[in-house]
Design a protein around this nucleic acid. Structure first.
Lengths: 130, 130
DNA sequence: ATTTGTGCAAATCGTTTGCATCTGA
DNA sequence: TCAGATGCAAACGATTTGCACAAAT
């Protein structure tokens, strides 16, 4: 899988890949993945986590999701789908692509091409619910 | 205007407000607004710019726009509209709300309520165009 | 008189980088 | 052998904060 993506299959990358891709789709931050790796006794540094996540994203294995007020998240589901994000938490949720439909895409200005669309619906806890 | 928003009208806030709201709709970063203010001989510190932008946003006078790979932008157009963002620049553009239509909004999970939707279409320069 | 904002510098957070070392091709 | 990856610690950029002072109610 790494080789196919043009990445050298090193020990760390294989271990991280196993954590990320062996189960269901998931969202991680660098920090969270680092803790998981440490707990799984994967010898890896935080810097390498950042490098690896960025390489994976570059190679199309992961999708970067930027949200306001939280560190960058990476999504193992690389399809173009929107997200919910709960404010003041690290909770990022997929929205099934079917749940939201763009009626019409805006015309891209001359000389440019689209490099992807990000849609994030911010959520807050309803008043009264602890 | 400041008073209506529940903000104390100080000299700095009035000057910054004048820069932001006297012309057409615009997008600024803290750093950019700081330089503008300095050039306009407004005595203000960068920390105050940040405070002011955050207060303005909180009060609903500005809208925060988060983009990947650039500092936070603030939009004087507080209506809920999507943006183009040109990668590796600070160029943020409004997309008229009419240009994009959501067919269907995703159901908000139980116990939460929506706090706003962000839509950003990332653009890159077309290959071959310097 | 009291509350709130300001300025500065220092602190913080997330992330990247320089460099020496190691490792996979 | 040698490009590329790793680890560490230091550097970094954007933003926030603590505290003394000033200004607004």
């Amino acid at each position: 899988m790494l080789r196919e993506a043009g990445l050298r299959p090193t020990a760390q990358r294989m271990s991280l890949g196993a954590i990320l891709f062996s189960g269901c789709d998931r969202h991680v931050t660098a920090e969270a993945l680092y803790h998981e790796a440490v707990q799984a006794s994967v010898p890896v540094s935080l810097a390498t986590i950042y490098n690896t996540l960025n390489k994976f994203a570059e190679a199309g294995l992961l999708r970067q999701v930027i949200v306001s007020g939280a560190p960058t998240h990476f999504d193992t589901n690389t399809s173009n789908h929107p997200h919910f994000f709960v404010e003041n938490t690290n909770l990022l949720l997929d929205i099934p692509a079917a749940e939201i439909v763009l009626e019409k895409m805006p015309a891209v200005p001359d000389g440019f091409e689209s490099a992807g669309t990000e849609i994030v619906v911010y959520l807050k806890r309803k008043a009264g619910c602890a």
